[in-house]
Design a protein around this nucleic acid. Structure first.
Lengths: 208, 208, 208, 208
DNA sequence: AATGAATGAGACTTCATTCAT
DNA sequence: TATGAATGAAGTCTCATTCAT
């Protein structure tokens, strides 16, 4: 809630240092996961000493929470800036934005996993980011149904199905399981096609 | 008769003890994840000493591999015993079988995550189980397309979409994100409905 | 002091089993040293179970002592059977007998080392075998001096010098430090030549 | 000036701490041998925590190598500083320098033994130190033969005989086998006398 | 008497965290 | 504020020894 621009030079320096450390932590976590990452790794990546980490974050877990929070903010912003006209390729755009970069996919996996053992990660990542995304998606779907674009599915179910499919594909990508001849973008289009056909009405957008 | 069932009392005792330890390990891993689980935890859950673990498994990683292998076998058997007549609710049945129990869902998440850091888990779980499942699904879809039940989607894409959606829902469940008024079975049905509609043809099974 | 021939079949069987285990232990100790050798190694080499070892020997240390005692007996017997006429090549013969086989050299090193940490090994190997050998050598030297063959060195010093040189060469051999063009036998001859020249008188055997 | 002496205070502190730990390790290894020594022992002797050991050495084996290397350096320096005029009592001086202190003798035994199981100890101690010593000795002997002081023995054999005798005496000392009425210095003189007589010519230095 | 699975003490090692400089 | 050496709790793993079969 203190999301204002830091006034003093001191505050700006602190914020910059925090961001520098968080970025390093995100990098290391995405490469090694939370447990395998050492504070030494993170300090080296951030080009500070280990001791300095503890001047900005209470402990290693706090670093993970910081990364999760930043990631959640980014996801929400990303989601909200997708233009309403793009309803049909909502998934495609979101997938492209989120999972084009391996680092984002891997971080996503880390949060997904660690939120089971870490209440705060769950708080920041799951509660805030994912619920937010799902709520937005649900609203979109509700609108589309009202406008007759989509058939009358349960919007809650539909929104969760979309999220689940996206998450699942991120995992498949990370596991190296994917169609060999498809780029991320092409894949996104094809997946969207299937889900979209599962959801839409068949008056105006009949099969070709 | 001589192949599958251990002959001597000694061999039976060893197999039983191995199973006992693997079961304990599966339990602990599903509760704590791999890294948070200690060999002490597992030994206590198996009601043996820590040293005994090492009479049956080379190291902690080997325990995880053992659990993954057993899980993979189970998944494949499960998949193969689903009756062909149940094509339409293939997903529903599989989801119900696999993810009705929280322990299975949680183990699935553990394997999904650990396979990134552990080549053997990837080998046993991803390579053998998931590829197998996807291949089977792909074949089912191919058949259904040939019989005109499904429209002409790319079977590879479709099979992966199904897997991704199932995996994603397992994750959502674990995260506590799901429709509050739905049982796993009802959920499965609804999800299936969406995907099914995204895949089927619209001649005989047109919308009502 | 019970060095009689076992009467009953039972006693003979016990003695045979003990010998079998001791031989295995000697083999393993010579290959791996005492600390690196495991009771499992020894049991496998002896083709018995680990438990059986403990029916014949109180503990692992007791196995080492048993091997040391047997080795000491052998050394003493060996030493005593060298013919008196062979005075001049006493060293050569003894070196050849003792250290021709790598196993003997390596066991020697093991006893030498372990006797520092193990009072019983010191007792059986050092006290009994080495003191015996040195005493015998000393007596030989005393005789040779009395007969005018050797010059009037201190027999105690001379005997210890001989032992030290032999031991040292065994070590050099094990370390792989030796003259590349010499066989053990040739080496023995040359070493003997040097020591012998250091000890003998120069009336009848003057330099040529 | 910039090479041998650490510049900064930090580097000096690190070097001092390393030396402190190595000294403690040398002490413990000489008392207990390598295998019997625990990292706990060494940490206590160095008056640091066990964890601190691992800030300076990768593992226990690395500590042994560090001690061996320091010892080897010391031996070589020692050997090289013995004055050429002292040819005749080369052994006596070297023995006195090396083995007057029990700790040196015991460490020597530890390296001798452990180099069989530890490639790096062999590298640092045997390859570098012992080969060096033997080569130097061989050269000395070669010179003495050329100058007619020693008779025409094989210099390689003679050098190895000297080394072997010294090593053997170190072992005898450790085993408590030695002439009871002799000091190390007197012993050294007597041993030298024997070897010397075994090597020298008999023109100018004939027996009296 | 023989077996070998079970035991558990204790070894080595890692690493998040602290704190003197 | 920054540093990074020191810490020590806690983890994994080994292996001599025991004991029920």
């Amino acid at each position: 809630m203190l999301e204002t621009i830091p006034q003093s030079r001191r505050e700006r320096r602190i914020a910059a240092r925090q961001a520098q450390i968080l970025d390093a932590a995100a990098h290391v976590f995405s490469q090694k996961g939370y447990q395998n990452a050492t504070t030494k790794d993170i300090a080296e990546a951030a080009d500070v000493s280990e001791g300095t980490l503890y001047n900005y974050f209470a402990n290693k877990r706090d670093l993970l929470i910081g990364v999760a929070r930043a990631y959640a903010d980014e996801v929400i912003t990303d989601m909200e800036t997708i233009q309403p006209e793009g309803y049909e390729d909502l998934l495609a755009q979101f997938m492209a934005n989120r999972f084009r970069r391996g680092r984002e996919r891997r971080l996503f996996m880390v949060f997904l996993y660690e939120s089971r053992w870490n209440e705060d990660v769950r708080q920041y990542y799951v509660e805030e980011a994912m619920h937010h995304i799902i709520a937005l998606t649900e609203q979109h779907i509700r609108d589309l149904i009202a406008r007759g674009v989509l058939r009358e599915v349960d919007p809650a179910i539909a929104a969760r199905t979309m999220s689940a499919t996206i998450m699942g594909f991120a995992a498949l990508f990370e596991l190296g399981i994917s169609v060999n001849h498809g780029s991320p973008e092409l894949l996104g289009t094809q997946v969207t096609d299937i889900l979209w056909n599962g959801l839409r009405t068949y008056g105006k957008n009949g099969r070709d």
